[in-house]
Design a binder for these strands. Structure first.
Lengths: 200, 200, 200, 200
DNA sequence: CATGAATGAGTATTCATTCAT
DNA sequence: AATGAATGAATACTCATTCAT
């Protein structure tokens, strides 16, 4: 299709970058296409040349935002250290990712809400959740095999860890003071991990 | 103010009921006032007689939706049985509440997203979270005092339980198959509770 | 639906009148909805309250424009005079109707063109043609029965008269000088009628 | 101008062929330049290299479509057979031409409508009508001189024949079932011709 | 000659809100 | 209190045309 694929990809990213800034500032429906046009420095025609609707831009951003880094999965499974340590590292990495997304986190709910109406968006989020969940399953499985963790229901344990993390994001967005990631947040997760360890 | 206060309240509820149905179906943005008018069976003028804007309807719904039943708090604290049993009962009740809301759960994200823009909405949700959190704190505290639970960080433990529950809701909305409340969901919560118990 | 049907009908006519003026001036697609709004003296919202699209306005106008006056049919069949005289009178009336439509005639082709894409428009025009054709058939039939006309193929004769008239409109629109209705036009029609008369 | 004139002409025809297909399908207004680009298999730049606007394409098509074959005129005037026979042959040829245009006939109305706004288009159609009319005039004149036809008003007679044919096209486009060219159509024309013959 | 990315003025349509009755 | 007609600012999207390569 595109004569110059790199340029085409660059333009798309240029538009998505601008859109993310605008969406973070105004939310999905208060953001006007003209705002994205202005922020991107391109023309309206160009914007529509690359994306045929506002919805398509939202879907594309959700794809980029929830693209899972599969590499991370494999490396963590083979990394050194106890499973518990690596789980905590994973959580810390993810929290760091959230911090880097900065303003974007604010529109996380917009994506969640959009997912209920736009199948494309739902798929990307769903896949993201599933990948993260599978990583947790594998890690916990490893911990059990190594005798580091109790022989709990692996699926349930992964779901619990999963949920704690997601739930903390929800609460911190609604009530930022309630969750100090560095203290209360990590403590909550550690506590959940503790429950998986052997009692003695 | 109103000549017939009960009628007035009835009309308001009639409107809010209709609005919830429409919002759950279409989301806040795509829902038109005319949709609510039609769903309610009232006229547009009447709708605006009771609520002066769309935003006010959203706020009113969030108030109704997140109104905490304080009674439940006190009764649970004084109820019989182990703390663990009562916590599980609390979770079961809340899950039941969600089930009763059925299709309405879908608008949860809309409210979370709206909370970032509308202070009224945020306040109701925040208070809801805080009340629930405080109840958990009190219960866990009781468990520790009775020697039933380990002397963990009460705030962190409550936050963890809190978060698990909220996280499960998020996941179940995006990927309904991933969380079977009756099995995996409850297992995840039980596991988290287990972590709080004495090891022996 | 409408609380005040007369008012509703009045408003619709007000809009259609304005639309006809604008369409005659600019043609269908050069006419902007704003032009119709301005010409009508109403607001844009009101215009869309009564017609949900530009296309619907076009269809409504075509309905009004091609509404056949059935009364005329019956009266002509029972009127006095020779069939030939009455046919010529019919033609004269119709030509007069065209003159009264004045500017509207210019957009006749727009309707014909629209008919190929909008079924509503096509139906109204088709019905108009059919009604006119049936009247001609009845008149010619009468002429034959009275021995005034030759026993020709009635359908073919009506079609011929029909077509002459329609063809004259086409030519006069493209080349106004070519068809002087009062002279050449009527002469052409008289000639066609002559062909139906008895030779001797 | 062009390095290879034949190629240039070929490209132009390629574009005009594509444009006719698109115009017949969608009408002038709904047809987009991109549609013509796609149908032609060329690029947009190339299309604009040969025609500098959509209007110019429309005008060029009308020129091609309404170009009269002057040869036909002369040959028919010198051909053998009665005038009546030759007239009927002319009509049959023209009807055959229409059949060959098949789906293209639909754009006739678009051109008629366009003629009211674009002088270029009007001229081509007008000339076409005039040429055809003059041929009819000459033929009828010949018929009268040879004593084959009555000494009718030649202009009026030609106009009548002209109009019948044009009118039949109009009706057949709006209501294809109403005009079966092979039967009703030709009958109508024959009837008109009959009217020109001597009574005896 | 050919390409297709880039432009931006132009426009139909929507929908929250108001208000005369 | 109730009705539904009226309002108009706001906005996503289109598409003929241009131009750098």
């Amino acid at each position: 299709m595109a004569a110059r694929p790199e340029l085409s990809a660059a333009r798309k990213n240029q538009i998505l970058d601008a859109a993310m800034v605008v969406f973070a500032r105004s939310g999905f429906h208060d953001a006007r296409m003209d705002d994205i046009v202005q922020e991107s420095g391109l023309s309206k025609g160009t914007l529509y040349w690359y994306f045929k609707s506002k919805e398509e831009i939202i879907t594309a951003i959700s794809q980029r935002l929830f693209a899972t880094d599969i590499k991370q999965v494999e490396s963590l499974l083979k990394a050194e250290g106890t499973v518990s340590e690596r789980l905590q590292q994973l959580i810390r990495d993810r929290a760091q990712g959230l911090r880097e997304m900065s303003g974007m986190v604010a529109i996380l709910f917009e994506f969640y809400a959009a997912a209920l109406h736009q199948d494309g968006v739902r798929q990307f989020i769903k896949t993201y959740f599933q990948n993260f969940h599978e990583l947790l399953v594998a890690l916990i499985q490893q911990g059990i095999e190594r005798g580091e963790l109790r022989p709990v229901d692996v699926q349930a344990a992964a779901t619990a860890l999963d949920a704690v993390f997601e739930g903390l994001i929800v609460r911190s967005l609604i009530d930022p003071d309630a969750v100090q990631w560095a203290s209360l947040g990590e403590a909550a997760i550690r506590l959940t991990l503790d429950g998986l360890k052997h009692r003695q």
